[in-house]
Structure formats: C-alpha cells, structure tokens
C-alpha cells in the first residue's frame, strides 16, 4: 500500500511534467518558449521570498534554542490534558504552524521513539498529514506579493490547525484505540 502510494506520488509528478507539454504541443503552443517565459518568473519570486524566510527561521530557531519552547510546553500541558491530547504531541502541535521541516523532524522523533504503529505514532502521522504550516504559508504567500496586513487570515488558518489537530487525536482514538 505504501509503495503504491509513493509510486503514485512519484508518477503523478512525472505525469504532469510530460502531460502538460504534450497537451500544449497538441494545442499549438510553442512549448519551449512558453516554458522559458514562465520559468524566468521563478527566480525573482524565490529571491523575493528570502527575507521572509530569514525572519521566520531566525525567530523560530531562537525560540527553540533558548529553551523558551520547553517552558511553553510545560505550562500548556494541563490545558491540553483537558482535550485528551498526549503531552508527547505538544511539541508537534506548537511547531506545526511555523515550520514544515521542524514538525517533520518532531514526527520522525515520535515515530522512532514510540513506534510508527503505536497510537501516538498514528496520531502524529494523521496530524502531520491533515494540517499545514499556517504561519509559513502566510509569510511566504503574502510576503511574495507585498501584503503587510494579513487581517484575519492567520486567525482562520490557526483555527484550522487546532481543529485538525484535535480531530486527528480524537479520530485516531476512535479508529485505532
């Protein structure tokens, strides 16, 4: 099953890479010129992105390295117990909205420490799959087009993350517990 899914994900990319130019060619598009024209926009977007990434990564790194993250986790634990969230998932819940790579790292840690097929492992896997890095998306997407006032968007995104996380914990308890 896993191999099938992974293969599907791999093939999907290749399928798109081949399919789009072929369809374009059939429909009379000058595919090479069109590709180069589109690709030339990529450079400027990636460069414009850099300051936003620097701002976010520096702040998250400082917060973690200083030990402040551990303190927040200690104080949050009683609140999370109310919602039946295992304390071991707290770092994941806190990091998930900020950093995809960091939360992936925490998930790997949970999977190897408690076992991928343990209830904790299943919860972490579901939560990782069904939430996204809200603050990263806000800073990257809005940053690229120069939006300074994000208004209610981060709030809605964080609501989504919280709902996704709670549902992950609860659904895994029901399905696997």
């Amino acid at each position: 099953m896993a191999e099938v899914c992974q293969l599907l994900a791999e093939w999907m990319v290749l399928f798109i890479l081949a399919g789009i130019p072929i369809i374009g060619w059939i429909r009379g598009v000058r595919v090479y010129e069109a590709f180069v024209e589109g690709a030339s926009e990529g450079f400027s977007i990636a460069i414009r992105l850099m300051p936003f990434l620097i701002a976010m990564l520096v702040a998250v790194n400082v917060f973690r390295a200083s030990g402040a993250m551990d303190i927040v986790i200690v104080y949050l634990e009683p609140c999370l117990a109310v919602f039946h969230i295992p304390p071991d998932l707290v770092p994941l819940a806190l990091l998930r909205p900020f950093s995809g790579t960091a939360s992936l790292g925490v998930t790997t840690d949970i999977l190897s420490r408690y076992g991928a097929d343990s209830l904790l492992g299943l919860m972490a896997s579901t939560a990782m799959g069904s939430t996204d890095t809200t603050f990263y998306i806000v800073s990257v997407y809005f940053g690229a087009i120069g939006i300074m006032r994000a208004r209610y968007a981060p709030f809605v995104g964080v609501c989504g993350d919280i709902i996704g996380f709670l549902l992950s914990v609860w659904s895994c308890r029901i399905v696997f517990g």
Partner: peptide, 21 residues
C-alpha cells in the same frame, strides 16, 4: 491552503515506512 485538504499524504507514508511501520 492552511487547512491542507490531503488525499495522498505521500511524505508521511514514506516517513512511516522508514520508521519500520
């Protein structure tokens, strides 16, 4: 985007099989 509707959690599946699931 932030809600992350997902049909094929490819990364997680790879991660889980790497962890010996």
């Amino acid at each position: 985007c932030a809600a992350g509707f997902n049909l094929v959690p490819a990364t997680i599946i790879a991660l889980r099989s790497a962890a010996g699931s």
